[in-house]
């Protein structure tokens, strides 16, 4: 099994949420953003497209099992503007990935620029390839 498959979308999150809250629908509708995961021997890199999300509308939480990205759009349509044609959504973004302790949560670095979030997720020491000297 490739290690990259240890970063898998947390499908369970929707069910978990609907169980914990009595209302079937979440308060704020959210869509899964486009994202990409790449792997190097030492780390995973996560790239998430979050157009319209500013730094203060972004929440990145990492616990020992899950990475969660929640982004709210900073822009609201001014009252006087009339929409003639819409292709984008107003809904925010939500992405949950299970890393199954594959990531060293203390060393994560993240940067949001021009609507793209880049997260460097160094692998947990136990997962890094080790060269064993053979005597």
């Amino acid at each position: 099994m490739s290690l990259v498959s240890s970063l898998i979308p947390a499908f369970a999150s929707a069910t978990a949420r609907s169980e914990s809250t009595p209302t079937a629908r979440p308060a704020e509708p959210a869509v899964a953003p486009r994202h990409e995961i790449t792997e190097t021997p030492d780390a995973y890199a996560l790239l998430v497209e979050l157009p319209g999300v500013a730094r203060d509308g972004l929440e990145l939480t990492v616990d020992h099992e899950r990475i969660r990205v929640v982004g709210r759009r900073a822009w609201r349509k001014p009252e006087a503007w009339k929409a003639l044609h819409r292709e984008s959504r107003e809904a925010g973004f939500e992405l949950a990935l299970d890393h199954g302790r594959a990531v060293d949560a203390d060393k994560i670095r993240a940067e949001l620029r021009d609507g793209v979030l880049r997260v460097a997720l160094p692998k947990a020491e136990a997962l890094k390839p080790r060269k064993i000297a053979v005597a």
Partner: peptide, 19 residues
């Protein structure tokens, strides 16, 4: 994705082009 808006003074085009 492209959105199109207008008000009395102008027409606005908003395009999502992250990164």
């Amino acid at each position: 994705p492209v959105d199109l808006y207008e008000d009395a003074a102008a027409t606005y085009v908003r395009a999502e082009l992250p990164g």
